[in-house]
Computed example of a mutant assay.
Amino acid sequence: MTTLLKGAGQIALLCVFSLVMNKLVDFFHLKIPGSILGIFIIFTLLQTKIIRLEWVELGAKWLLAELLLFFIPSAVGIIKYKSVLVNDGVYVTMVIVFSTAIVMACTGLVAKKIAERKEQKPS
């Protein structure tokens, strides 16, 4: 039960952080999404050890595990634009396939670099 409460608290913390970043972007009229700014700031805070990984790890793992559920509304929303799919479906499909391939390749390269760094570090 404590793991459940800890995870829920971490998810709440991440959600509040996301809302604050969105308000900050709106307030300063920045041309970067609040979510991207939030990821950058969380990354910086984790790297500088201002916040510890244990404070957000459980909640972040759960959110990543359930990430697919967050895309279901957008996938269902596409149905409203049937004419776009009929007229430009091939182009949309090509963009999806190529962008997915690029993301997969970049993720693989980054993961490879991280693994190489971990192998080089003495334990």
Rank of each mutant, 00 (worst) to 15 (best):
residue 98 F to T: 03
residue 106 C to N: 11
residue 23 K to D: 13
residue 80 K to G: 00
residue 13 L to D: 06
residue 120 Q to Y: 09
residue 112 K to I: 05
residue 91 Y to D: 10
residue 24 L to M: 13
residue 17 F to M: 08
residue 5 L to D: 06
residue 44 T to G: 02
residue 31 K to S: 14
residue 84 V to L: 12
residue 11 I to K: 07
residue 37 L to I: 10
residue 3 T to Y: 10
residue 41 I to N: 00
residue 55 W to M: 11
residue 72 I to M: 09
residue 41 I to D: 01
residue 35 S to C: 04
residue 112 K to V: 06
residue 106 C to T: 08
residue 57 E to W: 09
residue 74 S to L: 15
residue 28 F to P: 02
residue 31 K to P: 08
residue 17 F to N: 04
residue 49 K to S: 13
residue 27 F to D: 06
residue 75 A to D: 11
residue 101 A to H: 01
residue 62 W to S: 04
residue 92 V to S: 02
residue 71 F to R: 05
residue 83 S to Q: 07
residue 117 R to Y: 14
residue 4 L to P: 00
residue 40 F to I: 15
residue 93 T to S: 09
residue 2 T to M: 10
residue 68 L to P: 00
residue 113 K to H: 14
residue 60 A to K: 03
residue 108 G to L: 05
residue 40 F to N: 02
residue 29 H to L: 11
residue 70 F to S: 15
residue 82 K to C: 00
residue 66 E to A: 15
residue 9 G to L: 05
residue 67 L to E: 09
residue 119 E to G: 02
residue 42 I to M: 10
residue 68 L to V: 11
residue 76 V to A: 14
residue 67 L to H: 10
residue 9 G to E: 06
residue 62 W to N: 08
residue 76 V to T: 12
residue 3 T to W: 08
residue 76 V to I: 15
residue 80 K to D: 00
residue 48 T to E: 09
residue 17 F to A: 13
residue 16 V to G: 03
residue 72 I to C: 05
residue 5 L to G: 07
residue 94 M to N: 04
residue 11 I to R: 06
residue 26 D to W: 07
